[in-house]
Amino acid sequence: MTAATQTSTSLARRIRSHALRMTHAAKASHIGSCFSMADILAVLYGGVLRFDPSRPDWPERDRFIQSKGHAAAILYAALAETGFFPADWLSTYSCDGSRLGGHVTGHGVPGIELSSGSLGHGLSVACGMSLALRADKKASRVFTLLSDGECDEGSIWEAALFAGHHRLDNLVAIIDYNKIQSFGSVANVLDLEPFADKWRAAKWSVVEIDGHNHDALHKNIGHMPLEAGKPSVIIAHTIKGKGVSFMEGQLAWHYKSANDEQLAQALTEING
């Protein structure tokens, strides 16, 4: 295991634990969605993204837009773990009057580039940031994390055509392809396959990886763009609820929060 992988694996464990506690305390949903993207987020914040938590608006930073805004708990956890704000904020998640809203909310929360929640918005905003950075000759990159279900939205494909046409090679889309959307499997609700081909057809460079394999994540996300002159898309094959045996692959954990007993068991599984 490389040092980078050790760092991100440890971070993934911590943010999974936080998100579990947060959703348990708030009786909030979307823990399954948090867990499918936890390793991707840990690799991004544990080594790939360039940022300075003491200067969230540092102009040279990489931008990260979490378009799947429903998995907010895990993003807040990653930002707290990397020093953007105190970890004790996390206990206020979804509480009355809290800054940490149930969907990703950046107002008053350092480190969040875009408030999201309605699906299909992040890729377009990422295109705008990518254009601006290119025009300003900045080396910063724009990463955006999409859910598979949100690729049902037409706006995603408007943005995909646009980014490919304009060769936005400072733009990276990562898709958390956990194969489950809110009312069933992606294959049954609205099949995305052949998924990689759709992105290739829109002039993107595509790679498919195991979204829980930290070595693979570092190797791929750490070296962007995949191809000069093209935007990059990482189709990360993931498992909803990854890391907790009774949550894995279960649609119900899009909605449920752990009870006390489940919390204890889940924490044991996560922390080994």
Binding site: E113, L114, G120, H121, L123, S124, V125, A126, C127, G128, M129, S130, L131, A132, L133, D136, G154, S155, E158, A159, L161, F162, H165
Partner: peptide, 22 residues
């Protein structure tokens, strides 16, 4: 920039540009 006949992407891209100082 002619965004094509894609107004959702135009509005989102405009936001991204503006959030980057434009």
């Amino acid at each position: 920039m002619n965004m094509g006949v894609a107004e959702q992407n135009m509005a989102g891209t405009a936001a991204g540009l503006a959030l980057s100082g434009k």
